[in-house]
């Protein structure tokens, strides 16, 4: 996770609160929130190497296949349920988001915006599925099976009556950062949403 993204997510977390991080990776975010916000954090992860990395950091990691559901977590048992950069790798992102909003009072979701001008150009001009530094997989070996755009995501929120408390966007390109305020779907590299229901 890049620093600008982290800065934004941190702003939306209440100090001392209970936080669940779906697809917590190597535990970097939870570790950082632990020291900056004294949160009581738990991370869900399925990749063995990342789980061991979390353990080494002293992060509470729970081996879980998010695609099999999160029924063992009671309603509203966390202040915030986070999911950074994992939405596109889920079997049913819509169901997981519903579950996140059931378990947490609020949710924070970040995902790569496939509506980004560079992705569009790659596909439009080259006629091939975009392979970028951020998304470096080929179409056949990618874990990212459900790409969406800023517009797609907000349509889903509307359909499911999900309130968007905040939306933020980040990009690694200076020029895109100038434009993404006006055209987020075209210039955001990563979209960050703060949600509730």
């Amino acid at each position: 996770m890049l620093q600008p993204e982290l800065d934004i997510v941190q702003k939306w977390i209440t100090p001392g609160s209970r936080v669940l991080d779906l697809g917590c990776g190597d535990g970097m975010l939870l570790q950082s929130l632990g020291s900056s916000h004294q949160i009581e954090g738990y991370g869900l992860e399925i990749d063995p190497e990342r789980i061991t990395a979390c353990i080494a950091k002293g992060v509470n990691v729970i081996e879980t296949d998010i695609n099999k559901g999160l029924a063992h977590f009671p309603d509203k048992s966390f202040e915030t349920v986070l999911m950074t950069n994992s939405l596109q790798a889920l079997m049913r992102p819509d169901r997981t988001i519903e579950e996140m909003l059931r378990i947490g009072r609020e949710c924070v979701v970040t995902f790569p915006n496939f509506g980004n001008i560079r992705a569009r150009t790659y596909l439009g001009v080259k006629g091939q599925m975009p392979v970028t530094k951020q998304l470096s997989y080929q179409w056949y070996d990618t874990p990212n099976i459900h790409f969406c755009t800023v517009k797609d995501f907000e349509t889903l929120c509307l359909e499911k009556n999900i309130s968007i408390i905040h939306r933020a966007t980040v990009s690694s390109h200076a020029i895109d950062r100038q434009l993404m305020g006006i055209w987020p779907n075209l210039f955001a590299e990563t979209a960050i949403y703060h949600l509730s229901k």
Partner: peptide, 19 residues
């Protein structure tokens, strides 16, 4: 084991779980 883990999380205890 998962039942142990779920109870520990609900009790706000630090826990690591691997299957």
């Amino acid at each position: 084991s998962r039942e142990i883990v779920d109870a520990l999380i609900a009790a706000n205890k630090d826990v690591v779980y691997a299957n």
